[in-house]
Simulated assay, not measured.
Amino acid sequence: MSKRIVCLRHGQTLWNVEQRFQGHSDIPLDETGIAQAARAASLLASLRPTLIVSSDLQRANDTALALARVVGLDVSVDKDLRERGGGEWEGLTRDEIAARWPEEYVAWEAPGGEPVADVATRVAGAMRRWAAKLDDDGLLVVASHGAALRLGICELLGLPESLWPALGGLGNCSWSVLQEGRRGWRLLEHNAGTLPEPVRSDDRPEAEA
């Protein structure tokens, strides 16, 4: 008997399709994203979640609510599960970012944006706090964002920052599964729920390949 965390990325938004950096911008799910959330809910309900928490941004919260309606749970909201802040890049496309900030684009460090280490610390901290509320066999679903979840998972696994790029990105309404063991958390599944397809996210490009 051990605790598990399902890290669920939100459904598609118009800005995902347009490859715009969303960050803290509160962009809603589009029609495809709503359908993705419903499909993910029907699958994840079979895991019998015992606790659901989401980012305060509506694209993640609405994804969580789709699952909550199926399993009869409430959704708690935690601002620490927000996406990485994009500073001056928010609302801009990948091409616009690359043209205006070629050096920063290569490093994927937005002017005025949030450092990856800070994101990893806050997201992993939130996941630990909520997991601590679980019974020994409980299942926590965390509805959040592509870069935020990938970085939080890396921190929760204890990976050194130099290895963080080795973990690929999460597609819309795909998920990763973590399980607590005697020596800490381990990754059971990553980017599950869909066949391999392009990932459109605020994450750095190599995490999406």
Rank of each mutant, 00 (worst) to 15 (best):
T93E: 04
T93M: 00
E96N: 03
G87S: 10
P115E: 07
W108F: 14
V77Q: 03
A99Q: 11
A126F: 00
D78R: 09
A110V: 10
A124H: 05
L81M: 06
G85P: 08
A126G: 01
G85M: 12
R84P: 05
V77S: 04
R84S: 12
A124C: 04
E103K: 11
A126Y: 01
V106Q: 15
G112A: 08
E114R: 11
M127W: 09
W101Q: 10
A99E: 13
A110T: 10
A120M: 09
T121A: 14
A124W: 05
Y105R: 12
D95E: 15
E90Y: 09
G113H: 12
L81K: 02
A117N: 08
D80M: 06
A126N: 02
R84M: 13
W130S: 03
R84F: 05
G86K: 03
R128A: 09
A126V: 00
W130E: 06
G85T: 08
A99S: 12
E103A: 15
W101V: 13
R82F: 06
D80Y: 05
Y105A: 15
D95H: 11
G91L: 03
E104L: 14
A110S: 14
P102E: 15
L92H: 13
K79G: 02
W130H: 15
E96K: 05
E103D: 15
T93C: 00
E83F: 02
S76N: 08
A126S: 14
V123C: 06
P115W: 02
E90P: 08
P102M: 11
G87T: 10
D95N: 10
R84E: 06
P111V: 02
V119T: 09
V116I: 14
E83A: 06
A110C: 12
A98Q: 15
V75Q: 01
D95G: 01
R84V: 11
A107V: 07
A117W: 08
G91D: 00
G113W: 13
A117M: 07
E114F: 13
W108C: 07
G113T: 12
D80K: 12
G125S: 02
Y105H: 15
T121C: 07
V116C: 05
T121S: 13
R94T: 14
G91S: 01
W101Y: 15
I97A: 02
T121E: 14
M127L: 14
G91R: 03
E90W: 10
S76T: 11
G85E: 13
D78F: 07
D95R: 11
W101F: 14
I97V: 14
G87D: 09
W130C: 03
W89V: 01
W130D: 06
E83H: 06
G87A: 08
P102A: 13
V116T: 11
E104P: 08
E83S: 04
G112M: 08
G91V: 03
A120W: 10
A110F: 10
W108K: 04
G85N: 11
R122N: 00
D118K: 04
L81C: 05
V116W: 11
E109Q: 10
P115H: 02
A124P: 02
G125A: 00
